[in-house]
Design a protein around this nucleic acid. Structure first.
Length: 729
DNA sequence: AACTCTCGTTTTTTT
DNA sequence: AACGAGAGTT
């Protein structure tokens, strides 16, 4: 193994194999390289059996990459080493021993949509309104409990106040339902692994003994439960190496606790701390900008990240009139740079997925190949969810959540009433819908429907048999054929149905890949489902062919020669919701820091003066983050109106005709829609509400809101732009 | 039971 | 603007 290219600190980190070690790795400081070499060093130089090594990452991608890179470095095969995500690791552990906790080993893993339907069900049975109690926020509370390792009983006991009491009760219901369905959500995977370890010390001891060397990547992103899990695993040998950068902590919203990394030295007083501060990725200009921005955070340990490269070129800043023009500017720049860089060398980053639209449109129009990471998720498409539900039910018949999804898809004439009866019966039996169907005869379900249910059961049982000897690809085909799902879509000639069929076809590339890696075994289906549950849309498509589009969050850990950051506007980034919360604001700033430090050579920042987002046009000032970059690092031409906090004089790129063309067009579209002007006192008539009088006019242009008192329908607030209104004289 | 339409909500980020 | 839940209709 060649360590000659390592700098002093890197080398130190690689060789400090014994005892606790904290590697504070700044962006682009060769963190992954150090980690992989460290593992390789353990294997090759220290002769540690691969069996004794554990490395935990947050994404599948990181895990995969790490394994590949380690494999390249070492002489022997390291198949027995565990390199996996927290969640995949826990699935593996639970799969062996979850029966100690009373769960079935063929448990399903719920995705967020499934979770929602469980919560909705609970709200329904409790006669609660989903409008007053938002399922998503309830799930956030539940997730919080689990991250804090608080069990339902404890949550209920400690609840104070009406909402706490209610939500903790819902948590309890939720957890019971999951248990009955042999289903776990993501947070359960961690929480239950810890519970397993607590209840079965010998199981814990097995893993403690096995994993003599524990590594955790992105340690700043661990939540309390994950932290706890790591502590347990490393308690015996205390050979724990954590790597992270507190400036890149951007997942607080899902429970990440930055204190985990900040307190490492207290947790392990004997710990060594090594700082990697030499950046090999970005030009000095880019790094200076990133450092200047992050320097505005008060709650941070100062760090001195040095560039290893030259100054490079200045940072481009574009100010556009609209988000459409912003997209066109990106395209223009992409084309400019495309003789020097391939499309795969470039990435466009944005704060929220909703912003991707305008950029995507521009790419489509100019036929520039692109790929989007995340966003409208492939795996949450209806047809994919349906197929997965079939597979889940075949694997785990107790999974009522999936069963209810597919029981009448395609339409089999099994309606809400029948399902209600089955559910009630299943509850009485303390069993599943699948089982309840066997008693359908006695439940007052019409004979015709009973027949349908029976034949469905037959089909599923058959498929279960088939699953034992078919490849996943074959099984998917059989499922689609036997259940009538394929026929349902192919007989429907709409464009939508056709695209759904295409998606299912696309899905088979995933199964094919799985089949290639996995010879047929008894538990093929289980393994496939486990993999799938933990796979995100970010994984897979590794092709290097187009410009990458993704959220800044998704970009963490990646690097590109050319990076675009769009939507640098107050209210967008930083997001409106955090503008007045200092802590949240610092988290956003770290996100900006992450985004900037993804770039190697070129950084192009842009903002739009007005933006149509979520159905309305808004005008925003320049993002404070943009203003925080020293002017001398920016490429400017011409002058524009000042931005946030006095503005640093950031300007348009060219002020050329390019900027004006779309400007006009957008304006025309806006005025066309608005049409008539409305004033207080005007009499109007509305398609549905009838006659009324305008009592107030708020906002302007697209945003004009009208308060109207209707004769019969009473007072309403309407958007002038969209309401079917006619002015009367 | 299936379909259609309307209404209201949503929009941060995700393993 | 887009989407989904729920109500109302056939």
């Amino acid at each position: 193994m060649d360590l000659s290219t390592m700098n002093k600190e890197q080398l130190e980190a690689i060789k400090a194999t014994e005892g606790p070690l904290l590697i504070m790795a700044g962006a682009g400081s060769g963190k992954t390289r150090v980690l992989t070499h460290r593992v390789a060093y353990l294997l090759d130089e220290k002769q540690v059996p691969s069996y004794n090594i554990l490395a935990i990452t947050f994404t599948n991608k990181a895990a995969k990459e790490m394994r590949e890179r380690v494999d390249k470095l070492i002489s022997e095969d390291a198949a027995k080493m565990w390199i996996s995500t927290f969640h995949a690791m826990c699935v593996r552990i639970l799969r062996r021993d979850i029966s100690y906790l009373g769960y079935d080993t063929s448990f399903s893993i719920l995705d967020p949509l499934d979770q929602q339907s469980v919560v909705r069900d609970i709200l329904k049975t409790r006669n609660l309104d989903t409008k007053q109690h938002n399922p998503r926020s309830i799930l956030a509370v539940i997730s919080n409990y689990k991250n804090q390792l608080i069990k339902p009983e404890q949550a209920v006991a400690e609840a104070a106040g009406f909402q706490d009491e209610l939500y903790s009760e819902i948590y309890k219901d939720y957890q019971e339902i999951l248990y009955r369905n042999s289903s776990l959500d993501f947070d359960d995977l961690i929480m239950l692994t810890i519970e397993l370890f607590n209840r079965k010390p010998d199981v814990l001891n097995y893993y403690q003994t096995r994993f003599q060397y524990v590594h955790v990547d992105e340690y700043q992103d661990t939540n309390h439960a994950q932290y706890q899990l790591v502590q347990m695993l490393a308690a015996k040998y205390r050979n724990i190496c954590v790597v992270g950068d507190s400036d890149q902590s951007i997942y607080k919203f899902r429970g990440a606790d930055i204190q985990n990394i900040l307190n490492f030295e207290e947790d392990y007083p004997e710990a060594r701390v090594i700082k990697l501060e030499e950046n090999y990725r970005s030009t000095k200009t880019i790094l200076d900008a990133a450092n200047a921005v992050i320097d505005n955070n008060t709650e941070r340990k100062p760090k001195n990240l040095r560039s290893n490269k030259g100054d490079g070129v200045k940072i481009d800043v574009n100010v556009s009139f609209s988000e459409r023009e912003e997209g066109q500017r990106v395209v223009q720049k992409v084309q400019e740079l495309s003789d020097k860089y391939s499309y795969g060398d470039m990435a466009v980053l944005y704060r929220a997925n909703a912003q991707s639209r305008a950029v995507e449109d521009a790419f489509v129009k100019s036929s520039i190949p692109y790929k989007m990471v995340g966003g409208t998720k492939f795996y949450s498409r209806m047809e994919i969810k349906d197929l997965m539900s079939y597979l889940k039910v075949i694997q785990n018949p107790f999974d009522d959540i999936s069963f209810q999804r597919i029981i009448n898809v395609p339409k089999r004439g099994i309606g809400a009433k029948t399902i209600d009866k089955l559910r009630a019966h299943a509850e009485q039996l303390n069993s599943s819908i699948y089982d309840a169907i066997r008693d359908a005869d006695f439940l007052g379900i019409p004979a015709k429907t009973v027949g349908k249910l029976m034949s469905l059961l037959q089909v599923l049982d058959n498929l279960k048999e088939k699953s034992k000897y078919l490849t996943m690809t074959e099984l998917v085909d059989e499922v689609l054929a036997d259940t009538g799902y394929h026929d349902m879509l192919s007989s429907d000639k709409t464009l939508e149905a056709r695209s759904r069929l295409e998606n299912l076809e696309e899905f088979k590339t995933v199964t094919r890949e799985f089949d290639n890696d996995n010879p047929i075994a008894d538990d093929n289906l289980f393994n496939f489902l486990s993999d799938m549950a933990l796979v995100s849309d970010q994984d897979g498509m590794d092709d290097n062919s187009g410009v990458t589009m993704m959220t800044m969050h998704a970009s963490k850990g990646l690097e590109f020669p050319v990076i675009f950051v769009v939507g640098l506007e107050e209210g967008i980034f930083p997001s409106r919701r955090v503008q007045f919360d200092d802590q949240e604001l610092e988290e956003e700033r770290r996100l900006m820091y992450v985004a900037l430090t993804r770039a190697m050579d070129h950084l192009i920042l842009s903002r739009a003066e007005s933006r149509m987002l979520y159905g309305k046009t808004e005008t925003n000032m320049q993002s404070r983050f943009l203003s925080e970059i020293p002017e001398e690092l920016l490429e400017s031409a011409g002058t524009m109106a000042a931005g946030f906090s006095g503005g640093s004089g950031v300007t348009t790129g060219t002020g050329s005709s390019f900027a004006r063309g779309p400007k006009k067009r957008s304006r025309i579209i806006n005025t066309n829609k608005t049409g008539t002007a409305f004033n207080v006192g005007d009499k109007v008539s509305h398609k549905a509400f009838g006659e009324g009088i305008i009592s107030q006019v708020k906002g302007e242009g697209d945003n004009t809101e009208l308060d109207i008192v209707f004769k019969t329908a009473g007072p309403k607030r309407l958007l002038a732009n969209y309401a079917p209104l006619e002015k009367k004289d």
